[in-house]
Write a protein that binds this DNA or RNA. Structure first.
Length: 415
DNA sequence: CGAGATTCATGTGAAGTATACCTTTAGGCTTAA
DNA sequence: AAGCCTAAAGGTATACTTCACATGAATCTCGTA
């Protein structure tokens, strides 16, 4: 109890000196500074990405002379340092510009996948404007009016904007590619300002199914981020672990194991760092003095679990109701197959019980399709012949998190 | 017995509705000159 | 008269509903061997 309390404390705020001293008396805190292992931390130097960073820098360079930089496109699997490198160069170039007096440089970073932005073109542009310090209503404006507002905001003076669109493939999948086209075309409507786009994508094939016009304008320059291999991952982990952990709390081989795990998952450095951090947290919770090898296995499991549960928890009520129906049926039926009709019936009952409004079957059908997209369930349209057509639904949650998922849903739904 | 017709239970697309929120506009009230 | 506030009018995005039609294999029907 005591220990868990401190862990929470440490998680909440950043530790100041006093906390640090107290902590060393109160608990066996293995971390020197945990934030270093968190994914939003940008290290002073980025290992094994020198080449890419230099290339980016040289492409963006012209901006410092007030010229427009080429649009740039970064490929690479998750956790290969794309975002980090882009942000890194962006920040450097921004401060360089300030140093040399040129005020007219703005570096904007947008993640197209994050919850508040995702889904619509409108929200993405709105987010850009917010970053520029303006504000846009959440709804109510025609989309092109938002674009106009955006151009107005930039164009009042001579300046260069570098706009990073992270996970751009997600945006294109949800919306369509003419939204990028609009963005690339904005340049021709600007009189004073200039925009350079940096697109970041996980999918290597993303460019191939893009409108050719968009492809040529966005991909003026392309940089590929290859996955890290186990050795490089080890270097990165070592570098960060030294800053993050107290000395000597890592069991021999812990770093190597993390690196190996992550290397197996297409060289994902973020994953490796998460693994290490969570392993540390588990070790503390168990009251151990050292992070052991087995903690990494536990961490691996926990991370998978948390990812799913987070998604579930943040889902809107109606989605939770539908998912809850599926979870219930899954528990009831065991191996028996679940069909849309079954889900709708239980959903119907649950709505009655919880006094929630009931959606139509049509809508529920769409919701089920969306869960399918999320990978939470596997839904396949089959024909049962005389007995009609339906989706055959299987819950894809690992069995060890089903109970937890159910718990969260019941809590979320006030059951 | 087999080929076609039927049928069921939903999938799926299009169009319409409700709601929440935004801008613009016009009128009315206040205030300062 | 100028400035400010408010309410009404006119618009949009989003989530959902309604309507209508599409699907595709199990099952039925019926002609034929």
């Amino acid at each position: 109890m005591f220990i868990i309390g401190t862990v929470l404390l440490v998680e909440r705020g950043k530790m100041d000196k006093l906390d640090k001293i107290f902590d060393s008396y109160v608990s066996n805190n293995l971390f020197k500074s945990k934030s270093i292992l968190q994914s939003n931390y940008s290290p002073e130097s980025i290992l094994h990405r020198g080449e890419q960073i230099e290339t980016i820098a040289s492409i963006l360079g012209p901006v410092l002379k007030g010229e427009r930089a080429s649009n740039l496109f970064l490929y690479g699997k998750t956790g290969t340092g794309k975002t980090l490198s882009a942000k890194y160069v962006g920040e450097k170039i921004e401060s360089k510009a300030k140093e040399t007096g040129g005020e007219g440089l703005k570096f904007l970073y947008i993640n197209c996948k994050s919850k508040k932005v995702s889904d619509t073109e409108y929200r993405i542009v709105a987010e850009i404007i917010k970053l520029l310090g303006g504000s846009v209503p959440a709804t109510g404006l025609p989309t092109d009016a938002v674009y106009t507002r955006f151009t107005d905001m930039i164009d009042w003076k001579k300046q260069n904007i570098i706009l990073v669109l992270d996970e751009i493939d997600q945006a294109v999948k949800k919306i369509s590619d003419d939204f990028i086209y609009t963005l690339t075309r904005i340049n021709s409507e600007l009189k004073n300002a200039q925009i350079s786009l940096i697109g970041i994508s996980n999918s290597l094939t993303f460019m191939d199914n893009l409108d050719p016009r968009v492809r040529s304008s966005l991909g003026e320059e392309e940089i590929v981020f290859p996955p890290y291999n186990a050795l490089q991952l080890r270097d990165i982990l070592k570098f960060r672990a030294e800053l993050a952990f107290e000395e000597g709390v890592l069991e021999e081989g812990v770093i190597e194991k993390c690196a190996a795990y992550a290397a197996r998952e297409h060289g994902d450095a973020r994953r490796a760092l998460d693994l290490l951090r969570v392993a540390g947290e588990i070790a503390i919770r168990e009251g151990k003095k050292k992070v052991l090898l087995k903690h990494i296995d536990m961490a691996n499991e926990k991370i998978e679990k948390d990812k799913m549960l987070d998604i579930i928890e943040s889902e809107p009520t109606q989605f939770q109701l539908v998912l809850y129906s599926i979870v219930l049926l899954d528990a009831q039926r065991g191996r028996e197959r679940i069909f849309t009709g079954d889900v709708y019936n239980t959903y119907f009952d649950i709505c009655a019980k919880t006094k929630n409004e009931r959606l139509t079957q049509r809508r529920v059908s769409d919701i089920i399709a969306e869960f399918d997209m999320l990978g939470m369930i596997n839904a396949r349209v089959i024909s049962k012949g005389r007995h009609g057509r339906t989706r055959e639904i299987r819950l894809m949650l690992a069995s060890n998190i089903k109970d937890k998922a159910r718990e969260i849903l019941e809590k979320g739904l006030d059951l």
